[in-house]
Every structure is written in C-alpha cells, then in structure tokens.
Design a binder for these strands. Structure first.
Lengths: 344, 344
DNA sequence: CCTATTCTGGGTAGCGCTACCATATTTGGG
DNA sequence: CCCAAATATGGTAGCGCTACCCAGAATAGG
C-alpha cells in the first residue's frame, strides 16, 4: 500500500528537522520551546537544520497538541473609536516581542455579541483574554470565570475583578473636569453625551455629583443620545442643548469628538469660547491642544492600559499574578484655553 | 493500562456528539460543514446532540486536519490611523456572518516587518490574505504569489495585481483636489505631507502633475516630513511652509489631520480661510464637513474597500475569481468652504 | 565502588478533526 | 428483475505537534 501523498503541501515539519539534525522530533520541539533544557551543541545543530529548511512551526498543530493556543483574545466595543484603537495598539506593541497572536473581536457595544464572541474565542483555548469594561452579562461573566486562562478587564476600575483589571475611574474623570469648570466660574454647565455606553454613564454620574455638590444640577442641562459619537453629532447636541437652555455657559462633553463639534459650532455661531461658553472634552486626543482655542480635556492612559493589560496577563501566564489585581492608571485633567475664563 | 485522563479539559468532542446522536463521527463533521450532504433526519438528530452537549468545534483541530485555517490574514501599516481603522471595520463587518476569524498584523509601515508577519501568517495556512498597498518587497511578493490562497491588495490600484486588488488612485485624488484649487483661483498652493508613505508619495505626484500642468509648480512649495501624521504636525508643517514661502495662498494636505492643524493655525494667526489661504484635505473624515469653515477634502471609500476585499476573497475561496482582478472604487472631491474663494 | 540524584534525549500515544476510500442503500433504465 | 450509477453513511489513517513516561549518561554522595 503506497503511502498517501502529504496533505499539507510539502512544508517542512518537525520530523524533517529532526532527521536533518540527527535527533528525535521531541528534542527539536524542546529546543524550540525550552532551549535551556537542551545541550548547547544539539541546540546549534537543530537551529542550523531549522534555518536550512526554513522550518516554521505549525501553530494549529501546536495548539491541538498542547490544548493551548498562543492567542490573546481581545474584545473591544468598537474598532474605529480612537480610544480603543490606541488600546489595541498598546496590546499589539506589547505582544510583538512574543509569539502570541492577537484575536480581536468587535462587540459593537452589545452584551450578546460579547457572549457569542467569547464562545468563539474560548473554542480556541486562548492563552489570555482581554475584555472591555466591567458590565459583562451574567453569562459572559461565568464564561470568563471558567475560562481557565488569565482574564483582564480594561478601561475601568471596580472592586470586584473577574481576575485582573486595568483602567481608571470614569466617574472621577467626569467629576474632576466639571469641578474645574465650576471653579473657573461656569454655572450652567451642560452635559453632552453620545452613545451613552456604561463608561459614558459613569462620566455623567461624575458630572452630576460635581454639579449637585455645588448646588448647580438641573436635569435640563443633560443632553444625551444613544447615537454613536461623531463631530457632527457634537454640533447637533450642542444646538439642542442651547435651544433647550439658552443660558448655558459651558459644556462637559462625553468625549473629544463631541467637544470639537461644539467648538466648531461656536465659531460658526460667533459664540465666544471660553467667555460665553466653556468647553471640556474627554480623552485628550492630540487635536485638543492644537485647537483654537485649545480645549480642556481629561487625558486618559489608553495606550498604557493596553500595555499594562498585556503585562499583567503575561505575568499571570508565567505563574505570577500581581498582588494588586486592580490597577488604577489614573487620568490627568489638561486645563486649556477653552475653560480659561479669566484670561479676559 | 488505564487510559490517560483527557488532556483537553473535558470539552465535548465530535465523538461525543456522534455517540449521543448514534451516528459516525464523520457524519457529524459533514452535517456541520456540508449539511446538504446529510439526510434531513440525521441532521436534526445531530443538531439536537450538538445543542444538548454545547459542542463547539475546535478550530485548531479543524485547521490541522484540513490543512486550512478559517482565518483571514490582514496586514495594515497602522492601527490608529483612522483610514485603516475603517478598512478593518469593513473587513470585520463583512466577515461577521461567517466562521472566518481575522488575524490582524501591524506592519508599522515597514516592508521587513511585513515579510516577518507574512511568514507568521502563512504558517497558519490562512484562507485568504489582505495586504495594504502595492509596494511589497520582492520577498514579500514571492511569498504572496506562492501563498496558495486568495490575496487581495487594498488601498491602491495598479495594473499588476499579485492576485486581486481593491482601491483607488491616490495620484488622481491628489491631482483632482489640486486642480480644483487652481480653478478656484489659488496659485501658490503648497503641499503638506507627513509620513510620506507610498500613498502619500503618489498624492504628491498628483499634486505635482496638476501644478506643472498649470505652470505653477515650485519645489519650495512642497513641505514634507517622515514623522507620523498628527494635527499638531499639521500646524507645524504649515508654519514651516509659510516661513519658507510667505506668499503661500493655499495648501493641499496629505490628509485631514494635517488640514485640521492648518485650519486651527489659521484661526490662531487670524489668517482668513478661504480668502487668504485655501485648504484641502484628504480622506474626508466626518469632522471636515462640520469644521468652520468646512474643509474641502477627497472622500475615499475606506469602509467599502474593506468590504469589497472580503467579498472578492470569499468569491475566490468559493472558486470564482472575479473577471476584473482590479477594482477601482474611485473617490469624490467634496468642495467646501475652505476653498470657496468666490463666496466673498 | 555502588546507589541515589540529576540531566539529556527519545519513544509512544494521542490532541480533535477531516481526507480518502469503502461500504451499504437507493434509484432507475433496460 | 437485474445491474449500473447515484446517494448516504461509516472506517481508517493521518494532519504536525507535544504530554507523559522512560532510559541511559553523567554527577554526586557515602
């Protein structure tokens, strides 16, 4: 019975390397994964054979045999939102020195979609999972708890991590920005919010806390929409807010896109910023410091969140979970011209 | 000799489903992949067993056995660049109704990094590859030619696709925008370019062609930098350009971030737009139409490029490569206030 | 010098799935 | 009513790799 032709298309396998190097297949496997367990001389022989054949291990076979794929599953609610794009970049950069791959999933801000993607990801037995936010559904939470791999929740902080957590307090971010505006002399400060995902909700809560503490809260100051955020939407929300409350003298925006929309609308309508209207954004995208006038915003550690999430996960994979399972990376209020009423 | 405990952690396998449904394992496999080849009654039995056990196929085992992973390898030069973020979103959305996964790689605009990632991706035997641009290294091109799967080059068009191609002409985009500015009465039109990747180079070539055709080209009008693009950089480039050539009366920008930086700097320096300076951007991000004044830009079909790339690849996987291997999705010049000199 | 311990390397037996081939079973034409 | 072709299901043998166990060599200790 003649042996069947190789299915795989003739790529060299570990057996080919082993034969060429004159060692057992398992030794090649070891030399590649735990070089310190193989003697120097054999290691060199094997490396030479690998180079000569151009051998690249098959990650699928590897995953099957070891019941563990070298994959980081990453779930984010949006791919185009600049905030998550930077988080993802931080994740990729921190993984580029390893052989881990990234499996990215877009939940579209949907808990059900998150559950579905989690199922898909888990079928691969990922090395770690990074998920956005802390508002997983009960089902998703259970899946994560029994995932059998490190799990990092990112973007927020809370006292009850599933496993580990990296982020900052959106509530405090909102409160800090609004307190600053109150101190700067603004009184009728509106809240403009798009999308209103859980993190936006908590920024709103921070806004409300600050306003109530100053005795300034009025529900008519709050203008929100479930529509995804955009600069255009910022303009529209501002128009709505102004129509509802013409005495508005400031806005705290959900994010920088909204703030930019407000700024442009002020230019168009000849509303003086910061004199007639103060503006504060959230996230501090690059453009905020260049805008005219420059726009106050809450700088958030997006790239760093991605980086830290990977570091924590890799440490956990290596067997050492950090002492503090919740890392609060904080934020920084960038005070700029758009809320500087005193300059004249 | 007692059988060793199952390695995989007790997840149900195809054999478990087969036993429960009272059929052969291969029939379960078929029912899942080619339902029409299995009788209605068995199909139902099997589906019931699948549901009861919560069976999810192991993609690694599947990939190993079939020598083909259900993965789209996608290589982009940047993850945070809004342009590629939208392309990636188009790819993800067009794949969400399938069981294909996406393997995303960030080449950081480096040909060598692209080669490396290509090696990594190919080791998984992907179902298709989507790569950015047409300037692959010779090595990368060879890898793609012998990849054994559909390959789609995106973002640009050229007559010699490796396999398939979806994009538009950056040269024509640049030329069209600049011609419009010339028609609008601008004469000393500068080119501001960041990063200067191959696509930016071709926009510059389009700029140059338009300027030369009108007898307006002057090398001192061109200001570029290899530094990655940002709004801040747009401001700086504009300042440089103006210092070099104070009689500048317009700028065609590499992309919208640069254009926005110019716009803000004009506000800050009280330079009238569009009277003293005309501005044109590239890509037409949402903010351009909201800006004050609104900014002329070349709208590019980013999301659609991602979508079409997936459609073409999926068709090729199904065995029907399109007649035209190169799809030119075009662009649209959005004429706006920033180049409308006649309005006053 | 012998036994206990480490260290290095290899053999065997799968991981969970599908390609390939073989074996019913059905259909239909003569 | 028989045989060929089509249809429906199953069995076998891997895919390429690693977990687990084992053997022999080297080292150490008494």
């Amino acid at each position: 019975m003649k042996p069947r032709a190789r299915r795989g298309g003739g790529r060299p396998t570990i057996a080919d390397v082993a034969k060429l190097a004159g060692v057992g297949a398992i030794t090649v496997s070891r030399a590649l994964r735990e070089p310190e367990r193989v003697s120097e001389s054999l290691r060199q022989q094997i490396q030479q054979a690998v180079d000569e054949l151009g051998y690249v291990p098959d990650p699928n076979a590897r995953a099957l045999a070891s019941a563990r794929a070298e994959v980081f599953g990453v779930l984010v609610p949006s791919l185009t939102n600049n905030v998550f794009a930077e988080v993802v970049r931080g994740i990729y950069d921190s993984l580029s020195d390893s052989s881990f791959r990234v499996q990215l999933g877009n939940t579209h801000y949907s808990g059900l979609e998150e559950e579905r993607l989690l199922q898909v990801f888990l079928s691969q037995r990922p090395a770690a999972l990074i998920v956005s936010g802390i508002d997983q559904t009960a089902t998703a939470r259970k899946l994560l708890e029994t995932a059998g791999c490190p799990v990092v929740q990112i973007m927020e902080t809370a006292p009850d991590p599933i496993d580990m957590m990296v982020g900052f307090s959106h509530f405090e971010g909102g409160r800090t920005a609004v307190n600053h505006m109150i101190e700067a002399g603004y009184r009728k400060i509106g809240f403009l919010g798009a999308r209103m995902d859980p993190r936006s909700q908590r920024r709103l809560a921070g806004y409300r806390a600050a306003m109530e503490a100053a005795g300034l809260f009025d529900p008519r100051l709050v203008t929100t929409t479930p529509v995804p955020s955009s600069v255009t939407l910022g303009r529209d929300l501002f128009r709505d807010a102004l129509a509802k409350m013409p005495s508005l003298d400031g806005v705290f925006c959900n994010n920088d896109d909204i703030a930019l929309g407000v700024l442009f609308e002020c230019h168009r309508a000849s509303i003086a910023v910061p004199q007639a209207i103060g503006i504060s954004g959230f996230n501090d995208l690059d453009m905020m410091q260049v805008a005219f006038p420059s726009v106050t915003s809450v700088r958030t550690p997006r790239y760093e969140i991605g980086r830290q999430a990977v570091l924590m996960a890799r440490a956990a994979i290596a067997g050492s979970r950090p002492e503090n399972r919740v890392a609060d990376l904080g934020f920084e209020l960038m005070r700029r011209e758009s809320t500087n009423r005193s300059r004249n």
